[in-house]
Design a protein around this nucleic acid. Structure first.
Lengths: 202, 202
DNA sequence: ACGCTAAGTTGACACCGTCAACCACCGCTG
DNA sequence: CAGCGGTGGTTGACGGTGTCAACTTAGCGT
């Protein structure tokens, strides 16, 4: 029903335009600029058009958030592939990619974990987030097999790593303009410090 | 000017009532129920009364958030005092208290780090948060002196601990109702795991 | 040719934060 | 004691927002 080859109907086009408009507004002017009226105008439709494609504003934002989770996962994977061959190197690359992507666009990251999305249990978001987490668990397990990472439950270790990188990024984003909490401004340093403490070898 | 002993004028009373109303609404019905009209009604005044005591809604929320930071710091300190005498035991108690307080009232914690407060650089909030962080740095330094914690920059270590406990709590609060990310549901376990990895001796 | 339905539009509503103007009362000064 | 300024409080109004409802349009299958 959606794959009209050309015509000029192009069903489903406005849905993509809407998501694109949300993304543009979000990054250019922040989350509070994302209003349904502004989204409609930017997408070239009226304010109520989104309701033909999404249940409400929350679902619209959730769909975009899910895409961001997927993109973050892809970024981590591609960073791991470019890294040195050792599992530990890949783990390091993944976590650094996570932090860098998050810091590169604070508005996106805030959307992913913000209350607008968190409030409703929209399944796509959670599935995407879980996929990301699953990748992490897998690489951690590999690191343990090679002995570079200490043993124990790989799930617990992955949870520790995930919590730390998320917390470090979130705190760095929360600091308003150069404040006094020294050490909290550089998430990459925090993550590397954790990895250093966890790594077994020299 | 504020210390009218009795009379019936009781200057400054409504300000406290307003903050109390915000706190009540926040915990009973969530952040989105905190509207100036509802706050006024609950405090027994009109909707515009808050503007006589606070610049705007954001400042009202920020003042409450600052108090929550202070209370969290107090809770951590009192937990540390009740703990065993060793610095490491106090550090453990402080971090566990942090997680427990945060989990006990998600709405409070979200307010403290939420966008309404984060957006404006209200100095009280940041000062309170910095005070909390400073305590942590101090105890970490003590632990390093006793040799129970590995050496290195105490600020960096404190940042790692703070990021981890914050991230663990935030992720636990973000999970909507029992999801598939195993290991992320128990912030205390994550924090203890980190402490175990960081502690030097048995 | 004729509806059916999906997509899009405008109108209206309730709610929100906030600006403005107005009122009451206390404590001060002449 | 008269007057008065400021503090705390109120109601009115405005622009903005998400959303419900009703209406229009266009393309499709029968």
């Amino acid at each position: 029903m959606n794959e009209v080859p050309d015509g000029k109907m192009r069903r489903g086009d406005t849905r993509a335009h809407l998501l694109e408009a949300v993304a543009g507004l979000l990054e250019e002017r922040g989350i509070e600029a994302v209003t349904l009226r502004a989204v409609g105008e930017r997408a070239g439709v009226s304010r109520q058009a989104p309701y033909k494609h999404f249940a409400d504003k929350g679902e619209l934002l959730s769909v975009l958030a899910a895409r961001y989770f997927e993109r973050l996962a892809e970024e981590m994977i591609s960073a791991a592939e470019e890294a040195e061959g050792t599992p530990f190197g890949r783990l390091e690359a993944m976590l650094e990619a996570y932090a860098q992507v998050a810091l590169a666009s604070p508005a996106r990251y805030r959307l992913m974990f913000g209350s607008e999305v968190r409030r409703r249990p929209y399944p796509e978001v959670h599935e995407a987030a879980r996929g990301l987490y699953g990748r992490l668990v897998g690489v951690v397990a590999e690191c343990q097999e090679t002995g570079k990472l200490r043993g124990g439950d790989p799930v617990g270790l992955a949870a520790l790593l995930y919590a730390t990188v998320h917390g470090a990024v979130d705190l760095a984003l929360a600091r308003h303009a150069g404040e006094g909490e020294k050490g909290l401004g550089d998430p990459l340093a925090i993550v590397r410090s954790l990895l250093a403490h966890l790594s077994d070898g020299p």
